[in-house]
Design a binder for these strands. Structure first.
Lengths: 332, 332
DNA sequence: GTTGGCACTCGGTAGCATCGAGTGCCAACC
DNA sequence: GGTTGGCACTCGATGCTACCGAGTGCCAAC
């Protein structure tokens, strides 16, 4: 692909992203980066169409980029920080003010990202399966109800209520807590071995019940997903059917999780149109970034917009928020 | 309003809910509950239009119910349990299987309600301001980090992290926990008085920090809102602008909370069209029910659909889910 | 009071001409 | 030989007109 063709393709993508109208050779010829006549542009466009980068809705219309065309455009983007200083400030301020439970923070992050990009945003919370236990505590609620509070290495605080056959005294809870802490803290949640007998029946009964609850966590708690800015979907498409299809997908959290994972697994951070296999999202692109706690990747954030999206801006926003979120979670 | 006019109005509402088309006198005359000729129906319709129950989009079109028309219809509904046995079973099974944290349960409830009614569903979580403290516990995470776990009377488990200037030993945490429990448990969160000095400096320092975090909870944690079935909004309207407006409102949680509160405060459980003052929801109706924990109303659930919604079914579903949710939360 | 009859209204649809942005192709040009 | 202006052609969008039919209001008869 020679430079002139690339320039024309870029011009088509950029103009189409702005106008949502098929682009004719005349417009492109007027573009500052393309200093040739409409006729020459037309010749090049025919080639670009043959190569699959452009597509003509009908004979007498202009051209529209294909998924392949967007892909070329995205790959040719320089990762220049194209975010305005107002936006950068907004992100900084957000994370400076952030506080409270991790769930609320992730939830608010999804809204931040939606606000920055004007597309729907998705934040996938840390899954329990890779986390290890940082602290465990039994708290008596009522005579026969005990709350198990577990702090995980990924920052999540999980809790689970136990219902006992017999009453448990505070000292017994304290003993069981110590026993559990001694044997379980530091172990990954996914393969938590039952703590050995302590010799005391009551302690062992409590410990076993708590252990069972803890070991069940990875299965019991599906990945937490926060979706922000769903209303933006309705702005991106004017076919109400498309909007509905996209919203349905966004409600199916496991699909969203799978989609983000998939993109990251393939080593990408942008998935365009049909590249990801989710059929109702054929007209959508996804920009993704992972985030980390203590250097370990635990979750992902992303924005979902129409294929004709502002890639540069979206990529910059997602990357920045991902970095800042990692920092905020690691510090806290 | 004589019985025949009421029957005609009901027929118009029911037919319009099904077809979304303006209803002509001919259709109504064919309705089994209306045994008169189209001409008679027309005469009655003129009266109903004068009285503000019906509205004619243009001269040569059929009639459509106004908000006032829907209101009459809703008020004349008998509260007969119009839910199919499949749906009732689905609700029972849902609450039988329900487990885990209250937040997850409320979240899943919003999806249940959306699934039952085919409209967007909203669940407003218990607010902290009216709750009292049922249990408090300090848990050491790291040498200088302490987690405050508070169990509230409404079933919510709140947690908050303290960062200390000095290291705190486990015994000190235990002392502070006992001190806090003795003085704060049972008090409403809204006016938590600082526990009196215990004589021990470390204990008091911990207790004060924890007390501050607890007292800040009602302000720090805005009402939790769970919205399910947003995709249904796109099914209810075919103007994409309307869809967008409704979705925007659903994202503004404080508006949703205010709306539900408002409806319940006025002693209603249905708000139709412009009855609630939220302008972008002028084409929407809301069906609401409160739910309780231990006999005290702590939150609300609702569905939001187009004014031409299946009121009877929606009201039955919301009422049933509200009752069952109250039971589930009170038992657990 | 109810009903059948009838002239009238008016949105929706179909058919048709027109317009114009955009194309492909070709011959001329540098 | 690549580039360009010219030109005939395509085809969706727009606007106009005619027509259809569901539905109305009114009136006279029952």
């Amino acid at each position: 692909m020679d430079e002139r063709k690339a320039a024309i393709l870029r011009a088509v993508v950029e103009t189409y992203v702005e106008t949502a109208q098929p682009i004719g050779s005349g417009h492109i010829a007027r573009h500052p980066d393309v200093a040739v006549s409409p006729a020459t542009v037309r010749n090049e466009m025919v080639a670009l169409e043959h190569e699959g980068f452009l597509y003509q809705p009908h004979t007498s219309a202009g051209r529209v980029p294909t998924d392949k065309g967007y892909r070329f455009y995205v790959d040719s983007l320089t990762p220049a920080g194209s975010l305005g200083s107002i936006e950068r400030q907004r992100v900084s301020r957000f994370f400076a003010d952030a506080h409270g439970a991790i769930e609320r923070m992730l939830h608010d992050t999804s809204r931040l990202l939606a606000g920055l990009t004007d597309y729907a945003a998705v934040v996938v919370g840390p899954g329990s399966e890779s986390a290890s236990l940082r602290s465990v505590q039994l708290v008596g609620l009522a005579p026969r109800h005990v709350l198990v509070v577990a702090v995980l290495s990924n920052g999540v605080v999980e809790r689970s209520t136990l219902e006992l056959a017999d009453e448990a005294l505070d000292e017994q809870l304290a003993l069981a807590t110590a026993h559990l802490s001694a044997h379980l803290v530091g172990s990954p949640l996914a393969d938590l071995v039952e703590p050995p007998s302590s010799g005391d029946t009551v302690t062992d009964g409590l410990a076993t019940a708590a252990w069972r609850a803890l070991a069940a966590l990875p299965r019991a708690e599906p990945d937490t997903v926060f979706v922000g800015g769903t209303a933006r979907v309705a702005e991106s498409f004017d076919a109400v059917d498309t909007v509905r299809g996209v919203l349905v997908i966004l409600e199916q959290q496991y699909v969203v999780v799978g989609l983000l994972r998939d993109v990251l697994d393939r080593g990408l951070n942008v998935s365009i149109g049909t590249e990801h296999g989710v059929e109702p999202l054929a007209e959508c692109s996804v920009v993704v970034a992972p985030y980390e706690v203590d250097g370990e990747s635990v979750g992902a954030i992303g924005v979902l917009g129409p294929t004709r999206m502002h890639y540069q801006q979206a990529m910059a926003a997602v990357a920045l928020v991902g970095r800042q979120l990692s920092r905020a979670l690691t510090e806290g």
